[in-house]
């Protein structure tokens, strides 16, 4: 579909037409892929060849460059989903539904990766793959919530109805996740008085911060690219389902 340039609506209403949104954002996709690739290239170079080992953690500090971005994305994607859920409920914005649905599996994968890299980081530094400490436990709960939301999307037949119901549940989760985080922190301090974490710790030197920031942006752009692509697919899927319904209606 071509870009409708005659319309005199604001951009917010104009992209409410999913076809228009896809037409507008299609040219953005490949430049974003390029930025992501460059960021990953430079970030990985810095991570492996141009950053020192940490004086306490040694070489394992390099795991941080993949762990921290994934941990950040695990929460950022939920924020995106919650904002989209607001869009569904308040403005009934058709794209918000699409954004919500496309983000859920991505969030689940990034959360799983945060747990995976966290476990591999924990083994050499704490001596165990899994520690029931506050951060790891609440990330695990977040993963369960993502999986629940994905299961919910798959259970509904009618996607429009699903979007509104799931938006309600996503917002309940957004309210509840801080409470879960707080309760898990309270619980873990109660059960293990000696914390496994260094309190505070020294501030990171720039040589470690540079690769961290690069990888951080690389993963964020990766999410943006995949989210955009998945949204386009979802828009097309809905169009195909609409056509199928009309074809079935014409037969009947």
């Amino acid at each position: 579909m071509s870009i409708d340039s005659k319309s005199r609506q604001g951009w917010f209403s104009r992209i409410a037409h999913p076809g228009q949104f896809a037409a507008w954002t299609q040219p953005l996709l490949w430049p974003l892929v390029g930025i992501t690739t460059v960021l990953f290239g430079v970030g990985l170079y810095f991570a492996f060849f141009n950053s020192p080992q940490d004086y306490q953690m040694g070489e394992t500090v390099r795991i941080m460059y993949v762990h921290v971005p994934n941990a950040w994305l695990s929460q950022f994607v939920y924020v995106i989903m919650a904002v989209s859920a607001l869009g569904t409920l308040v403005w009934r914005h058709p794209l918000a539904d699409v954004s919500m649905k496309a983000a859920a599996p991505l969030g689940a994968v990034f959360t799983a990766l945060a747990l995976y890299t966290g476990a591999l980081w924990g083994r050499p530094t704490w001596g165990t793959f899994w520690e029931w400490d506050g951060r790891m436990t609440s990330t695990l709960v977040l993963l369960l919530i993502y999986l629940g939301i994905i299961a919910l999307w798959r259970a509904f037949d009618d996607q429009l109805r699903a979007a509104r119901v799931i938006a309600v549940f996503t917002l309940v989760g957004a309210v509840n996740i801080p409470i879960i985080k707080f309760s898990v922190d309270w619980w873990s301090t109660l059960h293990q008085p000696a914390s496994v974490f260094r309190a505070g710790g020294p501030t990171m030197p720039p040589s470690i911060l540079i690769p961290l920031f690069l990888m951080f942006f690389a993963f964020t752009f990766l999410f943006l690219v995949l989210h955009l692509k998945a949204m386009h697919t979802e828009i097309r899927r809905r169009r195909a389902m609409g056509l199928e319904r009309r074809a079935a209606g014409a037969l009947a």
Partner: peptide, 29 residues
């Protein structure tokens, strides 16, 4: 949330269990 899903009886516990973790923590605590 699951009432309009046919055979949604299994999915409600899966959704609610992680949400109810604070209740379990403070309840036992």
């Amino acid at each position: 949330v699951t009432v309009s899903i046919r055979g949604g009886g299994l999915i409600a516990p899966v959704l609610i269990l992680p949400m109810a973790i604070p209740v379990l923590i403070f309840g036992v605590g």
